[in-house]
Computed example of a mutant assay.
Amino acid sequence: MKIDFNKNKDGLVPAIIQDASTKNVLMLGYMNKESYEQTIATKKVTFFSRSKKRLWKKGEESGNILNLVDIKSDCDHDALLITVDPVGPTCHTGSDTCWDQENKSSFGFLSQLEEVIRNRKENQEDSKSYVASLFRKGMNKIAQKVGEEAVEVVIEAKDDNEELFLNESADLLFHYLILLQAKGYTLKDVEEVLKSRV
């Protein structure tokens, strides 16, 4: 990989550290050529510490190491994106990230939708929403709706109307998210099961 360590007078390039699984940014460090080569050789992320003026393997004292997954250079070859499998919290403060955020999976819009469903579940008596009405009708009705939507997806999969297939797929996913919440689970729980099978 081409990396321009000579672009700056100090011979350092910024290294953005990202969790390979959650895709969250964990920290920013700096690497020189030697720390980069040591990272490649050991598969443990090693930085050049600007304060200590020496190589510094993340977790050398705390044990909270960063196992290397992949390294990419940016278009100018003067910054790195390093994906890792972290062991323990990344920040020296004990936080998961150096931005004091929990390093948990986020499913983008689906996580937002889960939050809406959770809110409707918790406030079902005060809500006239469709989701709240399903929660009021109970588990049998929610499970029945998932079954109905699954059958409709299968039917549309065998036809050629892609728009109907995608709409039924959206309905199935939506009702499945409701069922997960009714059972006390989220997509994160399903993700953990799938990860354990890899």
Results as ranks from 00 to 15, higher is better:
78 D>L: 09
74 D>T: 01
127 S>R: 11
16 I>R: 04
12 L>A: 09
164 L>D: 08
145 K>I: 04
96 D>K: 08
11 G>H: 06
162 E>T: 14
3 I>C: 10
38 Q>A: 05
107 F>I: 13
114 E>Y: 12
69 V>R: 14
135 F>E: 02
77 H>D: 00
4 D>C: 06
76 D>V: 05
51 S>F: 03
130 Y>L: 05
39 T>F: 00
37 E>K: 07
38 Q>K: 14
45 V>S: 12
117 I>G: 02
53 K>W: 05
13 V>P: 13
75 C>R: 01
83 T>G: 04
143 A>S: 15
162 E>K: 15
153 V>R: 03
102 E>R: 14
171 D>W: 08
187 L>C: 10
33 K>E: 14
147 G>F: 05
45 V>T: 09
137 K>W: 08
118 R>W: 09
129 S>W: 14
134 L>Y: 11
47 F>E: 06
183 K>Y: 11
115 E>T: 08
170 A>L: 14
27 M>I: 11
91 C>D: 09
166 L>S: 14
132 A>Y: 08
44 K>C: 03
123 N>K: 14
156 E>C: 15
126 D>L: 07
163 E>Q: 14
12 L>Q: 04
149 E>W: 02
68 L>W: 03
101 Q>C: 04
186 T>H: 05
90 T>L: 01
22 T>V: 02
15 A>S: 10
90 T>N: 08
53 K>G: 13
166 L>R: 15
115 E>I: 03
80 L>Q: 07
165 F>H: 15
18 Q>L: 05
52 K>F: 09
89 P>W: 03
184 G>Q: 09
55 L>A: 12
120 R>H: 02
186 T>M: 04
3 I>N: 10
5 F>K: 07
120 R>C: 13
29 G>Q: 06
155 I>C: 01
70 D>Q: 04
131 V>E: 08
62 S>H: 02
175 H>L: 08
38 Q>I: 14
12 L>Y: 01
111 S>H: 09
163 E>G: 15
178 I>D: 12
32 N>M: 12
69 V>K: 15
125 E>G: 01
108 G>L: 07
93 T>N: 06
145 K>C: 00
76 D>W: 00
142 I>F: 03
79 A>E: 01
178 I>H: 12
83 T>F: 06
33 K>S: 10
4 D>R: 04
175 H>F: 15
142 I>Q: 06
149 E>V: 10
34 E>R: 06
127 S>V: 11
39 T>H: 04
182 A>H: 11
145 K>W: 03
160 D>N: 15
28 L>T: 03
187 L>M: 15
29 G>I: 11
159 D>Y: 07
81 L>N: 09
111 S>V: 04
182 A>I: 10
173 L>A: 12
133 S>I: 11
10 D>I: 04
170 A>R: 11
193 V>C: 07
140 N>H: 12
